[in-house]
Amino acid sequence: MTVTFKPSDITLPKTWHSLKPLWQGDETAVQEGLPHSQLAPAWQILLLGDGSPTRHLQLLTGERTEVDVIDMSPIGLDPDNAPAQLQVVPGPRLRRQVWLRTASGQRLAYATSWWEASHVDDYLQNRSIPIWASLARLRTELYRDVQGLYYGHSPELEKAFGQPGPFWGRHYLFWHHGQPFTLIYEVFSPYLERYLGPTSLSERE
């Protein structure tokens, strides 16, 4: 899996790209799942499952999943407009933003993650490769705890993906040895419909 580090062609503000939700769900929605008329089964596996999205994207597209790192910013103890679960990640913190894309350049997802700054190098020994690849190399045992779902708009992501919204996203905690060590917020491009089908079964009617 190869990686490039380059500036995005989207002007990056001193913040991150969150969705303006039309709908959002909490842990109950994650545990129970959504009606298929709202979110199709294949998309539920991607969004609600505890597997690696980087690995899933690679399997779906048949291409290496590569990462463009667009931000590595120390934020101290700032809440950073992040989901409330950020408070369980010890501070001071570091924010990392990336695009996940195919080797041929198609952007598939956007992710922001928040790490305890003093320990980020323990888990991201090479900060420019996918988190999944870093943790797999370390044989790190972890639990991906999906906490929330979002369906909404982001003009910045619409421009970056080259796809109209609304978009589906989620946030989750990574746990290791019973302790939370990072919070991750991900948004997926509708481009993935060519592999997963429409996001809802009602779109097929």
Rank of each mutant, 00 (worst) to 15 (best):
R194S: 08
P35K: 03
L201W: 10
W175A: 10
Y151G: 00
Q44L: 12
P90T: 08
A103P: 02
Y191D: 00
P79H: 12
L59H: 06
A103C: 05
L86W: 09
L192H: 05
R93Q: 12
S134A: 14
S18W: 02
G76Y: 15
E141C: 00
L108R: 02
I129N: 01
S73F: 10
S37H: 09
S113M: 03
S18A: 08
P83K: 03
R194T: 07
Q85L: 12
P79D: 10
T15R: 15
L60I: 04
P53F: 02
T15V: 05
I10M: 10
S128D: 02
L48N: 10
R64I: 01
A133V: 13
Q179H: 14
F174Y: 14
G148H: 11
P130G: 14
I45N: 07
H153G: 01
L34A: 06
P79L: 13
Q163F: 07
A82W: 05
I184E: 06
I129E: 09
G178P: 11
W115R: 15
S18K: 13
L142Q: 11
D9V: 13
R107D: 03
G91M: 12
K14V: 11
L94W: 08
P21F: 09
R170V: 03
E193G: 00
S200I: 08
P190D: 02
N81M: 12
L47F: 00
P83D: 06
W115C: 15
E186V: 02
S200A: 15
G33T: 08
L173K: 04
H36M: 07
P79N: 12
G148C: 14
L39N: 09
W175L: 10
L22H: 13
L192S: 08
H176Y: 10
F181Q: 08
L173P: 02
I131T: 12
G152P: 04
Y185L: 03
K6Q: 10
A42W: 11
G162C: 09
R95C: 11
N81W: 10
R95M: 14
I184Q: 06
S200E: 07
A82S: 09
F161R: 03
T102W: 01
E63N: 04
N81L: 13
D9A: 14
A84R: 11
L12F: 11
R96E: 08
L183E: 06
G169D: 07
W23E: 11
G165C: 12
K6V: 05
L34M: 08
P190E: 07
L77T: 09
S8H: 03
G33E: 02
S154V: 03
H56N: 05
W115V: 13
